[in-house]
Write a protein that binds this DNA or RNA. Sequence first.
DNA 1: CTGAAAGCGCTTACAG
DNA 2: CTGAAAGCGCTTACAG
Lengths: 344, 344
Amino acid sequence: MIMKKSGRVTLQQVADHAGVSRATASLIVRNSPSISEATRKKVLASMQELGYVYDRIAANLRSQSSSTIGVVVTDFANPYYSEFLTGVHHQLEKEGYTVFLATTFDSDAKQDNLLSTMLEHRVGGVILCPVSDNSPESIGKILKLDVPIVTAVREIPDLPCDYVGINYEKGVEMAIDHLIENGHSRIAFLGGISDSSAWKKRYEGYVAAHKKARLPVDESLIFQSPVTREGGAQTLGTSMKHEDPPTAVFCFNDLVAFGVMQRMRELNLQPGSDLSVVGFDNVLEAETFYPSLTTVESFPKHIGMNAAGLLHKRIKDHIRDQERIILEPELFVRASTGKNPLYN
Amino acid sequence: MIMKKSGRVTLQQVADHAGVSRATASLIVRNSPSISEATRKKVLASMQELGYVYDRIAANLRSQSSSTIGVVVTDFANPYYSEFLTGVHHQLEKEGYTVFLATTFDSDAKQDNLLSTMLEHRVGGVILCPVSDNSPESIGKILKLDVPIVTAVREIPDLPCDYVGINYEKGVEMAIDHLIENGHSRIAFLGGISDSSAWKKRYEGYVAAHKKARLPVDESLIFQSPVTREGGAQTLGTSMKHEDPPTAVFCFNDLVAFGVMQRMRELNLQPGSDLSVVGFDNVLEAETFYPSLTTVESFPKHIGMNAAGLLHKRIKDHIRDQERIILEPELFVRASTGKNPLYN
DNA sequence: CTGAAAGCGCTTACAG
DNA sequence: CTGAAAGCGCTTACAG
């Protein structure tokens, strides 16, 4: 994991070549205004000629500063995180940071390792999308982190730090409201693991919407599964074997919903007419899938931009109050939902 | 873009606490075998107690080495690159590197900047997916790079360095062969810009397949567009207005194909029966799109893993011969292609 | 506006 | 196996 660097041109060599001191050359690379135009030009010419490359690492070491940010997500093959990262990068590049990116694949141990590695590389701050199941040790380590950190997408209970996310309860409530307005009363909740805080928040929204409409919550309509297409396909199969099957399903996220609709195709069930399906996230594919998916937009790109913004503020001011930014979700009604056929 | 670090525990403090010299402590963090078990334990305990974090930046500076790799892609919101990056990371983490990730959005100027920034951060090597249109200046800069570099996905003409890609000509040829076998003879080529090397390679495959079947190439069936869904939709519209319209279309990539099929839906044309559509890349969505897309798998994840592997080899041995790894594509026949209806 | 000296946190010879 | 000294490439006071 190591490579030797051969003769890199140093600031000293540039200074010698231009006939000035190292300190002067240093002021010039850092764009100090207190240098005469003549010497500046002379030194810049020398840099050009010698092919000088600024050593930001050495500079950061001496000045006890950092120009890097660590970003940790659970899976960047997931289009949701691709968009999140686009937002983060967009904002961070504007502010002149360079980013270390890493994936945990939702493993607590991996998250621990990654954070350590980033600390060893002296990152100036961290944006963390926590794994779904943070161990107490892991949380302890994060707390002891002496660098600015903001969490995003998922919140870690009892971790006092900046956070950006969306109002999950509200989002789910909007989705269930929409189904209820279409005459559905037996609405399954498919996918996700009830241990995770992400699941619990969605469940709260699910219950709240039922309560508001004075509908009972039937726990036998709740089917857990991994948050994947396969998981979705599998829960759909199970739920349709229920003695009093649902007429609509709320899926943990779009991925699960796609799995559900693929299995429906095999079972010759038409989304929207035979069974209404709603997802969560509004990934790009939700619009182009056939039939198009009714889902809740959760603004990953905005979350990313806001997280980067908060981190920047935190870095510039360590002692400011913690800030939480909770974006409001939005419902997109498409072809996968419709009137309850058993209702008139 | 700068943050001040407060009291980080140093190796000196650890050494003092444990009652050894700094050199001894340094040997211990680097797992030198020439230290007695007793002192090792003592020092490790001190590190634990003081909360020591290794400063890899300082170590790299002193030892003139690097533990970071720069990875530059054109767009990581594109699922193709998500998979590529998954491959890269998988391999690189195994070898103990930390990665700087950046996106060029296919801008030559941005690519230049990004490479400079990475050099300033003393990366030990670079994996570059070049922009489609590399300026000569840009290529010159890359050539002068004093760090190991491997290009992937797209090749830069006349740039002598390691490269990993797939056999694009062959892939397109397989796609066109498949259409010809189904009785198609008027096959449009939709999307992409003819300036790019990626387009030219596909075009070569397109021509080769026609030649092999002794079919004429009708240049009026070639429609360029941006490599996006919108671009695809637009070229489909134009191509269907042709006085002697095609019965099949080859799309620059899957994204273009999705755009084509969406526009077909609006025009009430059925993919596979009214018009055969084939894509390129086999992104995940190709299988789940309705109707599912016949396309050519281009193995982005494998390309990523191989690129990381080549870079590692290059770092360990600067003077080895340049290596080119060209993976073989694979055709996936699905529902979007079928017999030519005008042929019997 | 410029120069000589000290130091960021580590590793590298080199003596003991 | 351990310690004292020098140095990676830069920046930071501090004199001039």
